[in-house]
Design a binder for these strands. Sequence first.
DNA 1: ATAGTTTTTTATCATTTGTTAAATGAATTA
DNA 2: TAATTCATTTAACAAATGATAAAAAACTAT
Lengths: 187, 187
Amino acid sequence: MIDFFEFCNKISPLDNIASVELSSILKLNSVKKNEPIVTRSPHAREFYFIKKGIVKLCFNGDGTEFTMRFFEAHTLLCDIESCTKNEHSKYRIVAIEDTEFFSFSFFEFEKLCLTHHSLETFYRRFMTMANLNMMERISEILEENATKRYNNFIKKKPHLLQRISLGELSNYLGITQVSLSRIRALK
Amino acid sequence: MIDFFEFCNKISPLDNIASVELSSILKLNSVKKNEPIVTRSPHAREFYFIKKGIVKLCFNGDGTEFTMRFFEAHTLLCDIESCTKNEHSKYRIVAIEDTEFFSFSFFEFEKLCLTHHSLETFYRRFMTMANLNMMERISEILEENATKRYNNFIKKKPHLLQRISLGELSNYLGITQVSLSRIRALK
DNA sequence: ATAGTTTTTTATCATTTGTTAAATGAATTA
DNA sequence: TAATTCATTTAACAAATGATAAAAAACTAT
């Protein structure tokens, strides 16, 4: 729990009262490797803070799975699509390793944001960072081919490389397993 | 100016006082087609609300230009990278048509957000929407080939198709002009 | 209208990535 | 350990996209 508030305060300092109220809606959960993060309802609208392990935010297109992003320990995530839209989200959140995480209700969090400006500011800065992250991902996909993207991944996330399967990485890079295996072989 | 506040209130209603203070930092500008949006300093840290025209948020990789996103009339944009990071941003904002827009200082805006919760909420929801937008773009690039992405673009933004050059569209799709011309020919 | 410039098309060939299938290797369980 | 399943590699061919160059078309300014 300390980890979570350290994470928050690093992004944007929270009021004491806000912290206390936020902590009161946190719930600790865990899932096994390959299990989806489903705490209560299958389409729960929640935030998740990864305490230990790795999860992926992924979706299916035409039988193939794609991964939007990996989330390691000490990162916060949320399927914004399912939280903000009425349709069902196309995303799933699945553990890549045995994972422990805190969850808290999206709606309760937004309610707290109404009364705690500092929480709203944190929320806004969190979204800004997530947005920057996504834009960086887009630039990379647009300007680099699969080989370069693979090499960039190795450079940026060497620790993840050991813990993610080839197939999972290819789903993130947007190429097939076979292509990635070939790229790897050519080095 | 009315347009701008209609835009804001649709995303999240603003306090009257917040609106007044925000309106006091708005400046109306215009640029000609193909000109970059540079109001004062070349790396101004500002938001832009497009009143008329179209701009693109673009960047250069290895001699080729890529476009992150087009912004039509009645949309708000900001080069978050240049505003939130100390390094110089790789992005440029360039008009595709003669364009009129309001600009306002990023820092003054953030200052206003400190005192006006409703403005902060608006800001947060704006970032959330931008983020969703970027995620949708990533899914599409990951799961669809250039032909399908081109067809999706036609479906989603038929009005833009008439106003954007082939080259500009190919920079958005992440393929070469020549490839796009070929795709078009095969229909 | 004309000349000059820019954009788009067409064509050819090279490279990258996809598809399929089979072989190997690694992990899991009976 | 053997048997089974799952993940990775290899290979051969197909399809998509890139690179380059040249032709055609569209646009601009005089």
